[in-house]
Structure formats: structure tokens, C-alpha cells
Amino acid sequence: MEMTSLNKDGKMVCCLSGEIDHHSSRSIRDGIDRLIIQNRPKVLVLDLSSIAFMDSSGLGLVLGRYRKMRECGGEMFLCNTNERTLKILKMAGVDKIIKNIDCDKEFMRNEYKDNSNDSQTQI
């Protein structure tokens, strides 16, 4: 599981990859939570484009982070969600609560790279 986070203007993007199940969700959750505490972002974006597999544990992870961001007065979005993951999100009605935005991954990475506040974490 690899996670990259890029920070600019209070925005934080976490690119999740690999498979999210009950086993892997623990380390991903801890990773994201640590970054939230470190960077205190106003907006958290979870990039789910490279997720190969997700089950209900992934739903719990997404909803839990959403709750956490809302408690801190922040916002959370999902981005580039693939069809497979979207099917599960739709089933649970999560797509109606959390907005899914489309953004170009490379563009986003380049934009954020120029900033000196960059922080990249790999787990």
C-alpha cells in the first residue's frame, strides 16, 4: 500500500493504491489520520483511482475520515473513483454524501510539486 500526500493551501491529497480490505485498512487509516494531525488540512481529497479492490472496510474508512474532517470543520472529497469502487459507494449511498470530483492526477501532482510545503509520505 502506497500513499502519497501533497499539501498546498490547506488542501491535502492522499493517493491510495492497492487493495483496501479489513487487513490493509488499519494501516491506511492510521496513515491518513497521522497526516491529518500533522498538516491540519481544510480540504482532504482521497484519490481512489489506483484502488484495485475495495470492500465494506473501505467504506468504513472513507466514512470515518469524512466524519473526522467534518468534526474539525473541514471538507472531504473523493477523486477519480473508478467504476468498480463507485459501484460499492453507490450501493451504500456514500456517493450522495461525499462529492466525487474528477481531476487530472499528473496535473495535480505537478501543481502541488511547485509548492515548498510539499510533504510526501510513503507507507
Binding site: S25, R29, D55, S56, S57, L59, G60, L61, L63, G64, R67, I88, M91, A92
Partner: peptide, 20 residues
């Protein structure tokens, strides 16, 4: 749906997902 005894980070969607 949404019923869980597993705490706040469990979504309670296991059986509904299996069913669908």
C-alpha cells in the same frame, strides 16, 4: 444495512454487499 457491532470504522454493509 448499516447494522454493525464492530465499532465506528465498520460500515455495516457486509451482508447487503454480499446479497447484491
Amino acid at each position: 444495512p448499516l447494522y454493525t457491532t464492530g465499532g465506528e470504522d465498520r460500515s455495516g454493509m457486509g451482508f447487503p454487499i454480499m446479497q447484491s
